[in-house]
Simulated assay, not measured.
Amino acid sequence: MGPGTDGPRQRPRLPHRTGPQSRLSHGDGRLPRRARSPLNATNGATDRDVRNLPALTGARWLAALVVLVHHAGLAAYLSGEPQRSLLTVGRVGHVGVIFFFVLSGFVLLWSTPPSASAAAFWWRRVARVVPLHLVTAAAALLLGFTIAPSLGPRPATGGWPATIANAVLLSSWVPTWSQAGDPVSWSPGCEAFFYALFPALALLAGRLRARGAWAHLVGAALGALAAALAIDTATLDLSRVPLMRLPEFVAGVAWCRGAPGRACAPPWRCCCSPSGG
């Protein structure tokens, strides 16, 4: 419209603001619900900042393969020189388990998105681990009553109480029960304990600077060494007790917190403060 004509007035266009308030506000100064949530106070990190680590995921599969070779050697499927070679390679199986637990702590802290809640994290872990574990536990029980009696409830491994504890991932807490039911499920039993503690560990990790994280990594490594010495000197086999393997998982969490260029994760008010380096 010309200057002298009547018509609707056009509102002056305001300059585009690119500051934090323009990205977070509704226009009236109020912050959106998600931005106000303490679960997202993660130094500006978003779910997009959480990057995948295919290299470390592949390393975890490699550690699992080493453990598989170790168990194959113990089962004596072969004979002669192939069996001796299998046993030689399988000697590093224990190292593979340690590597697996350390990587588990690293990958969990790295990959958990900032928008997640502790309840959501636990639910995802249950959905990922429990169904497959119940299937393998049922298969072990079926084999125990048919062609593999050593997998069935036996007094030597705790009988039915130990088998039930195995089904709910608790048998590894009793050294003499750790081989009840599905014998290899002592490892998921340890992981279940780690998952229960992970929100608290993430809370502590998020309050550390990178240098502090490396100091805690050294402390966790020393704790793992002390646990290994206790296992060697104990009269019972404590190598499958979750509390004895906890320093390995903690070392992985501290390693992730001290890793350069890590996206700020995860939630629960826990992750990197603005001053965290």
Rank of each mutant, 00 (worst) to 15 (best):
G4Y: 10
G4C: 12
T5G: 12
G7D: 08
R9E: 13
R9S: 11
Q10W: 11
R11W: 12
R11Y: 05
P12G: 02
L14F: 04
H16E: 15
H16K: 11
T18V: 06
S22G: 07
R23W: 10
R23P: 05
S25H: 12
H26D: 15
D28E: 11
G29E: 06
L31S: 01
P32H: 07
P32I: 03
R33P: 08
R34H: 03
S37C: 07
P38I: 03
P38H: 06
L39M: 00
L39Q: 11
L39Y: 03
N40E: 07
N40F: 02
N40H: 04
T42C: 15
N43S: 07
N43W: 00
G44L: 09
T46I: 05
D49V: 00
D49S: 05
D49P: 00
V50F: 02
V50T: 13
R51E: 13
N52A: 06
N52R: 12
L53I: 14
L53P: 04
A55Q: 13
L56K: 12
L56I: 13
T57R: 11
T57V: 05
T57S: 04
A59H: 01
A59S: 07
A59P: 05
R60K: 07
W61T: 14
W61D: 09
L62R: 01
L62W: 02
A63L: 08
A64S: 13
A64E: 09
L65R: 04
L68H: 06
L68E: 03
V69H: 01
V69T: 06
V69G: 04
L74Y: 13
A75K: 12
A75W: 09
A76N: 11
A76H: 13
Y77W: 15
Y77M: 15
L78K: 07
L78I: 04
G80N: 02
E81M: 04
P82M: 12
Q83T: 09
R84Y: 08
R84M: 08
S85H: 11
S85C: 14
L86K: 01
L86N: 03
L87R: 09
T88G: 11
T88A: 15
V89H: 00
G90E: 08
G90L: 02
R91Q: 14
V92C: 11
V92T: 11
G93M: 02
